[in-house]
Write a protein that binds this DNA or RNA. Structure first.
Lengths: 127, 127
DNA sequence: TCTAGCGGTTACTTCAACGAAACTAGGTGT
DNA sequence: ACACCTAGTTTCGTTGAAGTAACCGCTAGA
């Protein structure tokens, strides 16, 4: 019942509104995948992440961590130890990202050869 | 056999090299998802896509289509009809993207409420 | 005291993406 | 002849994301 909306077209299997794009941009951006990958294994401190991902600048790391924290994917814990330390941990919500991300990384791993030969074909045909 | 690589650390379940990032940037970018979504249903012409996605500019649509074509995700077919027409179709390789993309869009749909409440919590605590 | 590490912030710059608009080039209708 | 459709390309300007580098307050160790 009430299937009266969405019948004139075949494309309502998923809608892609701006909310989808925005969230994907926040979560699948340049550095998030690597950070998530590390934090899935174990909580890490700011400097640990910097050392683990040498290519990321301090500024970008801060920005990315804040964004992931804001979206509830990771948690920032200030440890009141003597010198002071900050630890980043993945949240339960963040863990649910693992499976979809793994699937698409797996896609990349298995299909990369096909993609590369398609690129060669395309580049060779300088039509 | 030959499991001798990758044992000193827990983080080799997936590696994220530059190739992964590059391909994801090519395939999960701003407009690709919507285009793929449409082409999965039926082949479409250039102007059909423009009308279906009014927010995309002519230039960006061309660029995105060329990139998807180069990566073997879609195919461009020039139909020798009287006025001339160009049709874009999804390839078998492109179809294999459907399932991973669906999974992550499903993640967005189901987790969006949690993300939004996390955002409210974060924004309210103006620490 | 001087130096180094931690966890950032701020200011400046650079770069690529994106859009708007004009232009092309063939065909069509009136 | 004129205007419009298709499928783009080209030019120009804006914007935003990212990097560099400097600085900050705090603590610890030599």
């Amino acid at each position: 019942m009430t299937r009266d909306i969405a019948s004139d077209d075949a494309s309502e299997r998923f809608e892609i509104g701006a909310r989808h794009r925005e969230l994907l941009d926040h979560v699948l951006d340049k550095w998030s995948l690597e950070i998530l990958n590390l934090l899935c294994d174990r909580p890490s401190r700011f400097s640990e992440l910097r050392r683990a991902i040498p290519a990321v600048s301090q500024k970008s790391l801060t920005t990315t961590l804040r964004r992931l924290e804001r979206n509830g994917i990771i948690e920032r814990a200030v440890l009141s130890t003597r010198p002071l330390a900050v630890e980043y941990l993945i949240t339960p919500l963040g863990k649910t990202l693992r499976s979809p991300i793994d699937e698409i990384l797996h896609w990349v791993d298995t299909k990369m050869p096909e993609v590369e030969s398609a690129r060669r074909r395309f580049d060779d045909e300088a039509d």
